[in-house]
Simulated assay, not measured.
Amino acid sequence: MTGFLFELSFYLAAPVWLLMIFAPRWHWTERIAASPLTVVPILAVYLALALPVFPELWAAVSSPDLDRFRELTALANGAAAVWAQVIAWDLLVGQWMYREARLRGISPLLMGPLLVLTILLSPFGVLVFLALRATRRKPTPATPTPTPDPA
């Protein structure tokens, strides 16, 4: 069951990633990417994996220690729970990147490969995106031009 839940966490995130990469201009992609609720099913998987190893999980996070973390990830449920957590947070970061790119007019042709990099190695993808984002100014709302008074 743990192996199934481990794989399920990725498959629950994959449709959102696929939309952002392959259908970035579709109106439903924007609506879906705007919702933080996309991670709720993944977090349900996380809970199913984490609850059976909660004492080990709590020990690893309440008093961070490399050996305790190693003990947690040596357990199948522990490693799979950490994986589900990573998948959920990576998806949230990817959604933020997608929306920021749209706001700043960054080409989907550039963002597609960058989102793939973020799926695989999110810290690298985020750093590249932050560098790219720094080169793009946030668009400001257009100031309406005053209309002449007809009188």
Rank of each mutant, 00 (worst) to 15 (best):
P52L: 04
L91N: 01
M111S: 00
K138P: 00
T135N: 07
A131K: 09
F69I: 06
R136F: 09
R137V: 14
T143K: 09
L57M: 10
P108T: 06
A134R: 08
A142C: 12
V116A: 11
G94T: 05
V86R: 11
L109K: 13
L103Q: 15
L114M: 07
S62T: 11
G105R: 00
D65S: 06
A74L: 13
W83S: 05
P141M: 13
G94N: 04
L51P: 07
A79C: 09
L92W: 08
L130H: 12
V86M: 08
A84N: 00
P139I: 00
F54W: 14
D149Y: 03
A50N: 04
P139Q: 00
K138Y: 05
G112I: 02
V126M: 07
R68C: 10
T135W: 10
L66H: 08
A131N: 05
L130P: 11
L127E: 11
D149I: 04
R102I: 10
R68N: 12
V53W: 02
L66G: 13
D65R: 04
P64G: 04
G125D: 01
I87S: 00
L127K: 12
I87C: 05
L92F: 06
M111D: 00
T73I: 11
W89C: 08
L66W: 10
S122K: 03
V128W: 05
Y98C: 01
V128F: 09
I106W: 01
R99A: 15
S122F: 03
R102E: 15
P55S: 04
A74R: 13
W58S: 13
A101M: 02
M97L: 14
Y98W: 04
L130W: 12
L115K: 01
L103F: 13
L117Q: 07
P108C: 05
V82C: 10
W89S: 12
L51V: 15
T140F: 08
P64E: 04
N77M: 00
G112E: 01
A88M: 03
R102W: 13
L72P: 01
V93D: 10
R104C: 05
V126A: 07
L114A: 03
A101I: 00
A48E: 00
R68F: 10
T145V: 15
L117D: 05
P148F: 06
R137E: 15
P55Y: 03
L121E: 14
V128P: 03
R70S: 13
R70K: 13
A131R: 06
A101Y: 01
S122L: 00
K138S: 04
V116I: 15
L75K: 09
T145E: 14
P113A: 04
G112A: 15
P141K: 13
P113T: 03
A80P: 02
L103V: 15
P113M: 03
T147A: 15
L57A: 09
A142R: 15
I119Q: 15
V61G: 07
L120I: 12
P139V: 02
V93E: 08
A88I: 01
W96G: 13
A80V: 00
A48M: 09
L110C: 09
A142F: 12
V53N: 01
T73Y: 02
L92N: 08
P52N: 04
M111V: 01
S62E: 08
T73A: 01
V61Q: 07
L51M: 14
G112W: 07
P146T: 11
S63I: 06
I87H: 04
